[in-house]
Design a protein around this nucleic acid. Structure first.
Lengths: 221, 221
DNA sequence: TTGTTTTGTAAAGATTGTGTAAATAAAAAA
DNA sequence: TTTTTTATTTACACAATCTTTACAAAACAA
């Protein structure tokens, strides 16, 4: 059963969401302020986190950023005010996965949660990933661009796949290092940059889809 | 004939499935608890394993995980409760191939099994495999290249057949060792490389179709 | 603008993985 | 048994890949 954390300070909203989601069979927990939310999220491994942006004691943006820095890969859905365009954008860059504008219907929320849950498993299960003119076959370690084979090294290949699995999400160098290199890297090495460079050179010379998020890392859009 | 193992503790369900599958001409075996199931699965090479998740003595998830760790490549179908979203997801992550929710009709089950069999059995069931200018006759351990007999040793032959059955898929040395040598190899020996080398020498001097995937293993394209 | 930080890029250096031959061990045949 | 064949280990060179480094370019802040 999927585990969901709600970080929301308005008691009424929080209770309502919690009630709805429990009805749907999810395992729901709540936090009433930023700090508590952050600590819970950090300790437990939630599938989805619903994150209000305006919070006492530690705001949503910070929480999101810190969680990503810790390589937490929960699916984070921001709850934003209707007109807060700036924070939506900001939040997505920082590593949130999606947002829902308040007020929202239970149906909308549930739909978004499902997307998140599906993505967490699905894409890594799919052997073949299509993206623009690329076709990546994981079982045979092949990459085709417009049907033509592109020669990638193992690290390049793994990097590409990982970015695609986390499409739309900004990934920090640290996250990439721990997930692809398999250890927390010490020192300020910049291997990732070099591999991104090589990847771009081979399949994306104009950085059209491997975007640099300054101060954070990289993402594929 | 395809071999299927049912790991299910509820006698009634187990008998029913067994009956149905035997009707369809499968070679069926059953295990009544987790431990027995695991041991059978581990010793014999089943094409498909039907795995109940709630089991006495060793739960389904553990079984699945351990089997995959041993490089067992049976097609594993989990039998889950209707609303057990979490275990489905979890199970697929751990290495199960598919799931069927209880209660299920014989028709549904049989359809899923067929999917699994198609993926696995097909080519290994064929006695004669054609590939480019090669003709491999499994029953007589013969290999002809352009109609001319090529002398392969047993290991070379098995290796060639296994690569061909998994055509297009990159196979790690570990996978090859457990599936062809039949044990989990300790130490970092490189028997596989040597056999690949000999194979190439005899039928593919330019490594035109036995490709090396650096850092991974080998594949036939 | 200027200074500072971050990223892009190229190239050199270090490391790892594979090809290959030859030596040794094990198994099968004579 | 001995001989022959096959399997495995070992060693080494070479090549591919990874990582570091240094500097240029770009982005940002003041």
């Amino acid at each position: 059963m999927a585990k969901i954390l709600i970080i929301e300070d308005e008691k009424s909203i929080q209770r309502m969401i919690e009630y709805d989601l429990k009805q749907l069979g999810y395992n729901v927990e709540s936090a009433i302020d930023g700090l508590e939310g952050y600590e819970k999220a950090s300790k437990n491994n939630y599938d989805v986190i619903l994150l209000d942006l305006m919070l006492p004691s530690m705001n949503g943006m910070e929480i999101c950023k810190k969680l990503r820095e810790e390589n937490n890969d929960s699916y984070i859905i921001m709850l934003t005010a209707l007109d807060d365009e700036y924070n939506k954008v900001q939040g997505l860059e920082i590593g949130a996965d999606d947002y829902v504008t308040k007020p929202f219907s239970p149906r909308v929320l549930s739909a978004r949660i499902k997307v998140g849950l599906r993505r967490r498993v699905k894409s890594s299960e799919e052997d073949i990933i299509y993206y623009n003119d690329l076709k990546i076959i994981q079982s045979s370690y092949e990459v085709l661009k417009d049907g033509i084979n592109v020669d990638l090294t193992l690290k390049e290949f793994e990097l590409l796949v990982y970015l695609l699995i986390n499409k739309g999400r900004a990934l920090s160098r640290d996250q990439l290092l721990t997930n692809l290199w398999g250890f927390s890297y010490d020192g300020d090495s910049r291997v990732v940059d070099v591999h991104i460079f090589k990847l771009r050179e081979k399949i994306d010379p104009r950085a059209e889809f491997i975007k640099t998020i300054r101060g954070i890392g990289y993402k594929i859009i």
